[in-house]
């Protein structure tokens, strides 16, 4: 049940983050919730709802992904300030730096299986250092998310998995992070080509903010494409 509620929340946040900013009003909120309920309960193929398929393929998203989505959603609703650029970049860079070697190793490229560390307390120490450091430098988002991840894992009532890695990172987040930087590179490149002054930080920031919304859509499209490729007969 918790897993389904998490999925509902995740889907709602994804839709809220993808929707253009001007649509963010109470009407849009109600609409997205109705769409979500339809997605959750109306059978679309072979008697199964879309949520049934999504759960079949990706399972639970990590707590970090959920927190990023919530931060995006709440900022779009005007409830909180947008996530500070520095922290956002730090999180996404960390996801790439940790995620690529992590998934490579877990797919069998090395004798060491880092996924095993997540079953015990081995990952707690580095996360503890990160949380302390983030609190000290007042990166409140990072500090609170890392603490939340650890408490949800320790209580053991959150995700289907009992492995701390699954609370910390998931492949969709890695795909999103890669897509984000790819798009950012394209935007910067386009900025140079069109002779936009690089010093005009605000212009570029606005461009990033606009593209940010489509990053999710792109990431999801890549994931769906990947899923369909995997569906080919093996």
């Amino acid at each position: 049940m918790i897993s389904w509620l998490l999925l509902l929340l995740t889907l709602w946040c994804v839709i809220m983050c993808i929707m253009p900013r001007r649509q963010n009003n109470n009407g849009a909120l109600v609409c997205t919730l109705i769409i979500l309920l339809m997605l959750m309960f109306i059978p679309v193929l072979k008697g199964h709802s879309a949520a049934f398929f999504i759960r079949g393929v990706v399972g639970d998203v990590s707590i970090l992904t959920l927190c990023l989505l919530l931060a995006g959603t709440f900022s779009r609703l005007g409830l909180v300030k947008p996530l500070e650029e520095k922290q956002n970049l730090l999180v996404l860079v960390s996801v790439i730096v940790i995620g690529i070697p992590f998934y490579t190793a877990t797919l069998g490229m090395t004798y060491v299986d880092p996924y095993r560390w997540g079953f015990g307390s081995m990952l707690l120490l580095p996360l503890f250092v990160v949380a302390l450091w983030a609190s000290w430098v007042r990166y409140w988002f990072i500090a609170s998310v890392v603490t939340l991840i650890v408490i949800v894992w320790a209580v053991g009532g959150g995700l289907e998995s009992g492995n701390l890695w699954d609370y910390l990172i998931d492949p969709l987040l890695l795909v999103y992070a890669l897509w984000f930087f790819l798009l950012r590179g394209v935007v910067s490149f386009w900025g140079v080509v069109s002779l936009v002054r690089l010093t005009d930080f605000l212009t570029i920031a606005r461009a990033r903010a606009n593209t940010h919304a489509y990053v999710f859509a792109g990431g999801m499209a890549v994931a769906v494409f990947f899923a369909f490729v995997m569906n080919l007969p093996v």
Partner: peptide, 15 residues
């Protein structure tokens, strides 16, 4: 914040 981190991680280490 640091106190909260200490309490949460202490709980997590014990559990």
């Amino acid at each position: 914040a640091i106190l909260t981190v200490l309490i949460v991680f202490g709980f997590a280490f014990l559990n």
